[in-house]
Structures are given as structure tokens and as C-alpha cells.
């Protein structure tokens, strides 16, 4: 009985949202409300996740385990951010500065490290995968795309050169479209399986 209620909850919610695509005006309020509840639950799940992170670092600090100094930094940074965020008004310049002046340098520097990592990874691809059709086309495409991204090649509009350049630029689109359609097909099948109760990710397997 309990299982039926749970499956019905998932199916009815999903079917109502799906019906909303076809009866947009009639069901707009109901689907809007369901999506609001969904956003609320996702937000709450996020807070629970942050709570677990906090608990994990707190335990590490309390037992003075390895890496507890770094965990202490996480806890202090978290508490200071939450404290500033709740006590200062939402449009506070200090809160904005505190968050952005830490996030932006770290994120940009991590992206910079990614450039070096990607360069080495691309050179390693031949060593690990060998000279396959995909690895060769990957390298050729990456090289041509990098050259095209520099915008040095600018033939006059209407010339054969411009037409070929446009053709080469559009060539990766074919594969990307195929990949996107494949992902969509996969999403469609998984979604239908959940709505029909064939897949039940909400059930505790333990």
C-alpha cells in the first residue's frame, strides 16, 4: 500500500506537469504551484547537503583528525559568510565583496590550471587510445577550431573561400546535433520509466 502511494505520487505529479505542456492556459496555475514546491524541496535538499558538509568538517575538527586545520578553515569561512549574509542587508556591498573577491580569483585560477591540464590530456589521448578514427578527427577538429577561433582567416563575404570556411565551421554541428538528440532520447526513456514506476530512484535500496 505504502509503495503504491509513493509510485502514485511520482506518476501523478509527472503526468500533471506533462499535461501542462498541452493544456497550458488551463493548468498554468497548478503546474506553477507544483514547480514552486519542487524548487522549495530542491532548496531544502541543498541546505541538508550543506548541513552534512558542515557536520563532516565539524567531526574532523572535534576529533582533531588529519586535515582538521583545513576543515577549521571551511567552518570559519562558512560561518562568517552565513553570518554576514544574514545580518547585513541583501544588497550589502561588503557581503558582495566578501563572496566575489574570494570566488572570482579562485574560479579563474582553477580555469587557468584547466588550460594546462587540458593541453597535456590532449597530447596523451593518442598514447592511450592510439590512432583511431575518433582520436584523429578529434585532433584535426581541435586544431582547426583553435585556428578559426583566432579570427585570422577572414575571406570576403560571398566568395568561395568564405563559403568553405562556413562549411568547416558548421561541420562539428552535425556530431553535436546527434549527441544532443541521443541525450534527449536517453532522457525521454529514463523519464518515462520513472513516470511508469519501472524505475524508482526514490526508494531506499537498503
Amino acid at each position: 500500500m505504502k509503495r503504491i502511494i509513493v509510485i502514485l505520487t511520482a506518476s501523478l505529479t509527472g503526468l500533471t506537469i506533462l499535461a501542462g505542456y498541452f493544456f497550458q492556459t488551463q493548468l498554468a496555475n497548478l503546474t506553477g504551484l507544483l514547480i514552486e514546491w519542487g524548487i522549495l524541496l530542491v532548496g531544502l535538499a541543498g541546505v541538508i547537503g550543506v548541513g552534512y558538509l558542515f557536520k563532516m568538517h565539524l567531526v574532523r575538527v572535534a576529533h582533531w583528525q588529519k586535515g582538521s586545520l583545513l576543515s577549521l578553515i571551511v567552518l570559519v569561512a562558512f560561518l562568517v559568510t552565513v553570518g554576514i549574509g544574514f545580518f547585513l542587508p541583501p544588497d550589502s556591498a561588503f557581503f558582495r565583496n566578501w563572496v566575489l573577491n574570494i570566488q572570482i580569483p579562485v574560479e579563474t585560477s582553477l580555469l587557468a590550471i584547466l588550460a594546462v591540464t587540458m593541453l597535456f590530456a590532449s597530447l596523451r589521448i593518442i598514447r592511450t587510445r592510439g590512432w583511431t578514427l575518433m582520436s584523429v578527427s578529434f585532433l584535426i577538429s581541435a586544431l582547426i577550431s583553435l585556428i578559426l577561433n583566432l579570427h585570422y582567416l577572414n575571406p570576403a563575404i560571398g566568395t568561395a573561400g568564405a563559403e568553405w570556411l562556413e562549411f568547416v565551421r558548421r561541420l562539428p554541428l552535425a556530431g553535436l546535433r546527434g549527441i544532443l538528440i541521443g541525450i534527449a532520447l536517453g532522457g525521454l526513456i529514463v523519464g518515462l520509466r520513472v513516470l511508469l514506476g519501472m524505475d524508482r530512484p526514490y526508494e531506499d535500496e537498503s
Partner: peptide, 14 residues
Amino acid sequence: LAFLAGLTAALVIG
């Protein structure tokens, strides 16, 4: 979680 799964599945299908 069932509510969220149903909602997400429908949004993914759409």
C-alpha cells in the same frame, strides 16, 4: 523524493 522524481522526470521529458 517521489514528488521530486516525478516532477523532474516530467520536466526532463518536456
